[in-house]
Design a protein around this nucleic acid. Structure first.
Lengths: 241, 241
DNA sequence: ATACCATAGTTGTCTGTACAAGTGAACCGG
DNA sequence: CCGGTTCACTTGTACAGACAACTATGGTAT
């Protein structure tokens, strides 16, 4: 019950982590400043080096500390307070609600890259690129318009797939695991043809998520997901470290 | 090149992690299935238990595995493909761009909780609550309208603070570290008074972030951040594990 | 003065051992 | 048949020691 007692209800490595985080949040240790070395902490706290090491390593993984071999351990710079959101595959999300997901393939063809597209996919202007336009619906109500461009080098058989059965997202992440992803979220008004497809008014605000995935230095795919603000929202719950 | 070679260029615990992730992604081990115990892996791979333990523990932290003391280690369920976003403190973000951040306090007072607010803050209807309305601007252009309600029990001195110097976000997270946070992002059209304050048209779509922070089971604060879609977007870059 | 080298101190990893704590099944006594 | 106990097995934590890899500094030889 009493947490200040000496009988350690909490693991020692957690105690070390808390101590360090308190020193940082209290302003005692400032960003960029060096924190005591493992051996110093071993001597100060009377714990084994493996225990100290685990505490410091986990704090480094969490972004609280920065460790440089041969140099020392430092309080990580700023990073302020960040809140994280998670965006899931739309088909999974709908299925989890117990609703019916359907995808209508509106466009699935090959095209020549426009200057902007060539820049986005990091290919030559006029080079071939795959394009798909898919309307996702939940219980027959359209909820997402997926406009996607794919690098043919990454997925040569893209045009032969049946995306009414498996979403491009799922196919791509299963066959070409990405190493990096870039996201942008913004609020926009739909173009007239987009509003028509989503069966909303042109004045209805939409969430637009732009997602670009990389495999190494190559661009795999660039997609724009447009969702009516009245029917979709991103939610998440986060625990502090 | 050959990963089965004995000259370990990569640390052994990383090799174990990769081996396990490959078994999972290849479908060899399916979600929910039990993976070999630490002792079995020790015998199979000829490594020490601490090395195996580190590999399994890190994979569990990353959400790939689920470990239950006394039972075993299991492949984590689905979780599909999630993409994460990070939303930072607006003042930090503006400062990082080298621009000037200014905050204008429009409202800062005490009020009696309406039924909805009482529900949001988990207090009694009619109980006192603090309310602040702050307009954030970047180089004199309004970029965010922050409408915040604070639980007086959590921050009794809230009304005495000068939020033109320090944002409520920074003050609250410094004095009352939250343990949980709940977020929602949606696209909306601004109310007429909101459009007026942000100096935009009522037809301009906005990003609305609703953030609710908890300290234990108590609600600390509930805030709604409204940003013109034309002037703000959330971006992030993510690395795959 | 410059280039090279040795060295102390740091983090990174790995091993082997030990005990604690939790789970489930087999076992035994009533 | 029921209930408690014991036992094997699991993960969680902690320790002591060792070597490797890396960094900066100072000394040394040129």
């Amino acid at each position: 019950m009493d947490d200040t007692s000496d009988q350690t209800a909490v693991p020692r490595y957690l105690g070390v982590k808390h101590m360090i985080q308190q020193r940082i949040s209290s302003g005692d240790w400032t960003p960029g400043q060096r924190v005591p070395s493992e051996n110093e902490l071993v001597a100060d706290l009377g714990l084994s080096r493996m225990t100290i090491n685990r505490a410091l390593r986990e704090l480094a993984n969490e972004g609280v500390l920065t460790r440089i071999q041969g140099l020392g351990t430092f309080v990580a710079e700023g990073k302020g307070h960040t809140s994280t959101f998670e965006v899931r595959n739309i088909a999974d999300e709908i299925a989890e609600r117990g609703h019916v997901h359907a995808a209508k393939v509106l466009v699935l063809d090959q095209m020549r890259a426009t200057p902007e597209l060539a820049d986005a996919l990091q290919i030559e202007i006029g080079a071939p690129a795959f394009h798909s336009l898919i309307l996702h619906s939940e219980n027959d109500i359209p909820v997402q318009l997926e406009d996607r461009f794919v690098n043919p080098m990454a997925a040569p058989d893209y045009l032969a797939l049946d995306f009414s059965r498996e979403t491009p997202n799922r196919y791509l992440s299963a066959t070409i695991p990405w190493t990096d992803a870039e996201h942008t979220v913004e609020a926009v008004l739909p173009a007239s043809w987009e509003a028509k497809l989503l069966a909303i008014s042109r004045a209805d605000p939409c969430l637009a998520i732009h997602r670009k995935t990389f495999a190494g230095s190559h661009v795999v795919s660039s997609a724009r997901l447009l969702m009516p603000g009245s029917r979709y929202r991103i939610s998440s719950r986060q625990k502090a470290g």
